[in-house]
Nucleic acid binder design. Structure first.
Lengths: 341, 341
DNA sequence: GTTAGCACTCAACACTGTCGAGTGCTAACG
DNA sequence: CGTTAGCACTCGACAGTGTTGAGTGCTAAC
């Protein structure tokens, strides 16, 4: 038995219907649809075939049918027609995104909320690994008696800074000199290499040990520690709008997953490339979310570092729309984060 | 009819029981409690009196009784004995809070999560109004061809910075001079006055118009715009653990309130002072949350600016513990934010 | 003043029958 | 031979029913 034209059509109709209603769909419903010229009985026969082929599941004997993971896969890979976002919508997203575009972190936060608002699902954005950005220059600026700001400027134009303590008696000139040395030593090195280079400097330089140590700590904390933005989630409560989560227990376990960075990271560990990746149901590898799908795309910062943005929703999500939104936002985000000189 | 000793005791027992079980409590339950030497029948008589006095409600004829708002009020104002946090617990909270103490924003975020973890309710922290902090000095640092970092140091040691665009051809010396001028003009003025002073400078200074305008925009955005941290919420999903929210609709409306900054702000608009404020049920003024209580305390940054921290939970929340946690965290947070030289 | 006894109330629960949506199968139709 | 009408069957949803148990209020006795 093969999937002929008509089976495709019927399957598509079932999926479309199920995506909007979340109710098992019966033969009558399909038969009534415009564009389908067959009686319920015929549809039933076809549905029976589709079930045998593994594209449909039946919750129980006298219920309608529900698309299986296999069906969604087929749908996503072959049946789906790409949705176009209206220009107006694109514009609106852009605006909401651009409004705050000073720090990487706040751009990402706003992107997450734009994503979840636009899709009505839950969004996840993993911050870029900034480690591969290269340092352009480093500067120490005195701010108070024994405090300075260390500023690191990278090739992507992103600035990281941190407040550090400095030994007494270091005046602006001193700091300026140290800055020059630091810049010389660090220029063109990736941020990842800061630790090592600092360590070397600590070994060599007798004086200013304290200063260098503090600076190193501060920077490390910014880049890789608690302070570094990691994964941002938007619209967690959105999923409560779907009947799949009308059970509080389910909702709770969903929120529990959202709070576990490990699981989130696992969820969005991406397939690579700028392409949109779709993981349907159990494919996502997190058992608690086996009836969720996750769609991810990626974005870049400058030419090196990149991160992932994604949408988590029920398996019957509107893949169509989600894909276009992610695709668009991936580009928009890359632009917002890279074009900052 | 007056509230005698025994009525107090019984009321207290009822409240205690209800707070832990969330089930209407009957006369038998109270009678069985150690320390109560009366039969259910006697308790019933007393409960009947208490109901008449407005301290108890009866969901329906043959159910147990439930404390009324008036009862909680009495409990909170007179019956409750202050809980002591164990040293161990205090230490744990301190540690979780202190771990990241570089930027105001991240300290507040971590405080929110400490609060919600410690209480198992939802926490809200309103960021301090930084506008009343006074400027100590201002500095422009070149970071790239046409970009500079503007750094504002305040008397509380808090540093705000923003990336701005600068006109071509301004070298480090120029910027240094401008910084000096800015510092002179702005020193000792509150951040709130920046706008006005800048405006004056814009009028006077013929050159560097662009630069000043950009700087003003950037700073404004940082202080009062989208970028300024406003209100942070922690543990929103915590409330799902309580039977009060086993209904998804209720949970949804709760989350809706959490997403509305206006309502949150209304919720935590504080009664003033370092004192802990308690609003029970409808007292909080937000109809959607009429069966939630909110307990707030405040914290300070330096000597001027202050913010509010609070806990939202069901009316039958563990006021006792919540109050001690808030009190402790209020101090801890003030300390963490002020002691930063 | 306290308590035992008793009739009463009401939510929760399990059970039952009905209804309707949906199915599979078979036979008839074009 | 594909399509369709007809029919028996299945099963969840729902409403109605009786039972149980927790809890109450009242009264009379201690």
């Amino acid at each position: 038995m093969r999937l002929d034209e008509r089976k495709f059509m019927i399957l598509q109709a079932i999926i479309d219907d199920y995506i909007t209603t979340a109710m098992p769909v019966g033969s009558r419903t399909i038969s009534r649809k415009s564009g389908v010229g067959f009686s319920p009985a015929t549809i039933r026969n076809e549905m029976s075939d589709l079930e045998e082929l593994g594209y449909l599941d039946q919750p129980h004997t006298s219920a309608g049918r529900v698309p299986s993971v296999k069906a969604y896969r087929l749908y996503v890979d072959h049946l789906m027609k790409a949705a176009r976002l209206s220009g107006e919508e694109k514009k609106r997203m852009q605006e909401h995104l651009n409004r705050r575009s000073d720090q990487v972190e706040s751009v990402i936060r706003s992107a997450a909320s734009v994503l979840s608002d636009a899709t009505r699902y839950t969004s996840v954005i993993v911050a870029p690994k900034l480690g591969s950005l290269r340092i352009k220059h480093v500067q120490l600026v005195p701010v108070a008696e024994r405090t300075a700001l260390i500023i690191i400027v990278t090739n992507a134009g992103i600035v990281k800074d941190a407040v550090i303590h400095i030994p007494e008696g270091l005046d602006a000139d001193h700091l300026y000199n140290i800055s020059r040395t630091l810049t010389e030593k660090l220029a063109d090195k990736p941020l990842d290499a800061v630790r090592q280079t600092f360590a070397e400097m600590l070994r060599d330089a007798e004086s200013n040990r304290r200063l260098l140590g503090d600076a190193l700590n501060a920077i490390e904390q910014k880049l890789g520690g608690q302070d570094a933005l990691d994964v941002v989630i938007g619209g967690g409560a959105n999923l409560l709008n779907y009947p799949e989560y009308s059970d509080v227990e389910k909702a709770k376990s969903f929120f529990a997953v959202l709070e576990s960075k490990d699981k989130i990271r696992k969820l969005v560990s991406r397939g690579g490339g700028m392409e949109v990746t779709i993981r349907i149901g159990p494919e996502n590898g997190v058992p608690e979310l086996e009836d969720c799908s996750i769609v991810t795309a990626s974005y870049r910062v400058g030419d090196d570092a990149g991160g992932t943005l994604g949408i988590i929703g029920p398996t019957r999500m509107n893949y169509n729309r989600v894909i276009s939104v992610l695709d668009f936002m991936g580009r928009a985000l890359s632009e917002a984060l890279s074009d900052r000189k």
